[in-house]
Design a protein around this nucleic acid. Structure first.
Lengths: 269, 269
DNA sequence: CCATATTTGTCCGTATGTATT
DNA sequence: GAATACATACGGACAAATATG
């Protein structure tokens, strides 16, 4: 008997091969951002397929953020610089759908934003510091403007920090997970009793993180960021989940947090 | 003058509206995995568009892993359970393309696999332990079988560990980043002088990580995993990148590593 | 098992609005 | 402004594949 193992064959549709060819050219460097693809009619001649097939392939590539085609453009579809948009969509789908719990989302967010704070402390530029400072100012000013504005400024701070980390994958993943996690609790959050007191406390906490980043104290920044996030979501977690995530933050952190001054100004539970 | 601000309008193509409707139904729970969409002809009647438009929308949804349609199926396209495949593709595109450096990839991998090791130590089941054990055995047996088999077994170990962590997003992201990072150095790696000695050492290191996970020592497992990964890629990093990542691992780790016994059995640099 | 109806995959032709020259 | 080439969207057609009786 032969050692060859056969595998079930699946029909490869015509439009898929067109997509493959374009992606291959993109991967090999034959096609770079800003360049143009041939027009649909030229493609249909070169690839020896019908116009519908070419169009289906172009729609798929367009949905992946690879190309963009406009009606009437004689130059043909333009090759785009690959951005984080598709990653955002697919990660969001995976995070929202299925049965991903808030606890699992928080795990992911903690392990992203902790190191992000550390890297931001190490690598932050003056522009980064200014952006974070501006976000904190916006947070302080929007305490009286309502919860939605405050949440927006909060997102701006986290994103500025992630940008300062210099790691694009961390930034995109953190952005998505943050949004999904917020969506899970945003409706319950509006019924909070004393929102202003809560917001004031959160401004102070973010200022502490910012101060650690400014002083380039990465370990402190990471620890503060993780414990802040965890405490923020704690009310919506079960006791077991709180315990697991607490051990996670504790375990992934240095012991610095124990000897650090009580920068939060809050009672330690 | 009015306070209304108008914004430039962009043409929304017909197929996009179709995709939106399907995705909305999926998000609202009206459509669940395993259910079927109407046939193309039914959709074209319900949505009042041509069949081409319906088909373009279906191709986009199919490329996103949302549905799958087979020729001749009278029941219509089937709604799939959303899996990690699209996330894998988009993250891979972002990681390979653009100008993502090996250093940036490693940052991401370190902050994923460190916590993954920690969580695996906390949550590992007997099945997980068996899978990791099997992967390590395969590594040891494939030392003489060549580098490709060894690399495969190594991937199996990391994936088993990520599976044990219980966090699917961490698992998928780690898998992709691991693959991309390996691709960047896999050609240079084959010219190594003494591969067997290297492989022996790596088996020992993975055994140490496994032992920490078995003993549920999450901090040690995380520290070992991160320093192992860093040392593995060190030869292909510039001195500056080595310094940055070294401080990263050091900063994100506990001080346990300093007092831990020399489990690796190698000289400390 | 076979025959039939339905559906998908692919192709072709056409009308309309748009962007460039 | 006119001419040309383009994308969008529509409808019709045939072959291959599938499910059902």
């Amino acid at each position: 008997m032969s050692g060859i193992s056969f595998e079930p064959v699946q029909p490869v549709r015509a439009y898929e091969r067109v997509v493959e060819q374009v992606e291959l050219a993109l991967l090999r460097g034959d096609l770079k951002a800003g360049e143009r693809l041939p027009s649909e009619r030229d493609l249909m001649k070169q690839l020896a397929v019908s116009r519908s097939t070419v169009r289906e392939a172009l729609r798929v590539l367009e949905s992946h953020g690879v190309v963009r085609s406009r009606p009437g453009d004689p130059n043909g579809p333009v090759v785009l610089a690959l951005g984080p948009a598709p990653l955002r969509k697919s990660l969001q789908r995976l995070a929202t759908g299925d049965g991903v719990s808030l606890s699992e989302l928080l795990q992911f967010r903690l392990l992203l934003e902790g190191p992000a704070a550390f890297l931001a402390a190490e690598l932050r530029s003056d522009r980064d510091l200014a952006a974070m400072q501006a976000a904190i100012s916006a947070m302080r000013q929007s305490v009286d403007k309502g919860l939605d504005e405050f949440a927006g400024a909060d997102v701006d701070f986290h994103d500025a920090m992630a940008t300062a980390s210099g790691n694009r994958m961390v930034r995109v993943c953190a952005e998505v997970v943050r949004g999904v996690a917020l969506n899970l609790i945003t409706d319950k959050m509006k019924e909070h009793q004393e929102p202003k007191e809560l917001m004031d406390r959160w401004v102070a906490r973010h200022e502490a993180v910012f101060e650690a980043i400014r002083r380039q104290d990465g370990r402190l920044a990471s620890n503060l960021m993780q414990s802040d996030i965890l405490e923020f979501y704690a009310p919506w977690l079960s006791n077991e989940d709180q315990a697991v995530l607490g051990r996670f933050v504790e375990g992934m952190s240095t012991t610095l947090i124990d000897s650090a001054p009580d920068v939060h100004g809050n009672e330690v539970i």
